[in-house]
Design a protein around this nucleic acid. Structure first.
Lengths: 225, 225
DNA sequence: GTCTATACTCCGATAGAC
DNA sequence: GTCTATCGGAGTATAGAC
């Protein structure tokens, strides 16, 4: 958590006051604090449950008094929304990268879902916030929800690639196929999270069956004879 | 909510005082109150989230003061445990009946899982308490957990029946097959609960794919040639 | 078995000084 | 942007009268 103070020595009088440089530094420092708050909030949710998050506890761990946090977030719900939004974006990024690194089609789909599962198991508290809605008084904003549309599009495109490559039958190029695939990954993840809280992807009784489930897709969408 | 007072007229002096009859009546009345508390608690969890349950709110809806509830439950966690236990037993009963009414083997397995899914979607708050552990400070007692062993045994037996009936290959008669089946039903349910909170079994995008998934089991455990 | 009264702890949020 | 002080409310749980 060491922060670099080497650049831009403080005493330099050559720069005009109120420059964008100063503002940038302030803005960056502010952004760092925001990220730190969100990291602490994630820790608390992991330990106490998603519902156990409180600004008082965040303040305690950050070493400030609770009112100070209101300079960064207007309410507890705003913190939840920032956590939701950041989680959504990171999750999307992880899946996109994994798919880009794999062969288009079934390989990319499998790789993307597996990377998604790996990330979600490594960030369980955020995963619960994203998919289980455990805080009834929190509704994610429309902006925070936007990346999930992209997630579906990625999977839809991979299915289309798989059909074109002759890996799946033509019926796999449909919205229903995305639902079926989502059921498979959701089943693996929900069982792993509920019953094996300390294991990561690849360990235990549930996540290892995922590759097997993906192979079943060929049976679900058979190639025409 | 009318309660029958017809039986056992109050003034009858033929019976000795402090008879088991009197105690039975008291015990039954007490049990009714306990069930009513659990029903109200379920309503609250449904509206406010599993974590939103509070004895104060239960007392408010029951029309008593909070301290009165401590005559029935020693703590809030004891209420959670009673809810867990009752849910576990009802859920097991639903599945057992459905399986008994169906042809042994794959039909019984499918019928049991479908009945389970139907019941869980109709009792979502309890389902979350049973499977998602959303209250970190609550650990179900060993006694409350016991019925889940029976659940696994039921499914295991149905898989063995299916193998014997020639519906599935011999590898389906194994513990791993139960995990695979559990992933399928968990996936359907978690997607339905997260994304279609107002729909029941058979409606929406996810639960209708369950029969299709069960058909895939044949592909996963092919019959020997 | 019900109540009142109470002790205790915690939280979200705001006002205003510095 | 930090703090102190405070409001207003929530909750669990216990003691003791009736």
């Amino acid at each position: 958590m060491e922060r670099s103070r080497a650049a831009a020595p403080t005493g330099s009088p050559a720069e005009t006051p109120q420059t964008p440089v100063r503002s940038d530094r302030r803005a960056r420092r502010r952004q760092e604090t925001i990220e730190e708050i969100l990291d602490i909030a994630t820790d608390i949710m992991t330990e106490e449950g998603v519902n156990g998050l409180s600004l008082a506890e965040v303040a305690r761990r950050l070493g400030v008094q609770p009112p100070s946090l209101y300079k960064y977030f207007p309410s507890l719900m705003a913190v939840y929304d920032a956590l939701f939004s950041r989680g959504q974006l990171e999750h999307l990024d992880v899946m996109r990268r994994a798919m880009a690194d794999a062969e288009p089609g079934l390989s990319a789909l499998t790789a993307g879902l597996e990377a998604s599962g790996r990330w979600l198991l490594a960030h369980r508290a955020v995963a619960q916030l994203l998919f289980w809605r455990p805080v009834p008084s929190f509704e994610p904003s429309a902006q925070s929800l936007a990346p999930s549309v992209e997630m579906v599009a990625l999977q839809r495109a991979a299915l289309a690639d798989a059909v074109e490559a002759g890996q799946l039958g033509p019926e796999a190029d449909a919205e229903e196929a995305v639902y079926l695939v989502s059921v498979l990954i959701a089943g693996v993840l929900s069982q792993a999270m509920a019953n094996e809280p300390d294991l990561e992807w690849g360990q235990g009784r549930f996540t290892p069956v995922f590759p097997r489930l993906m192979k079943l897709l060929v049976a679900a969408f058979p190639l025409p004879a």
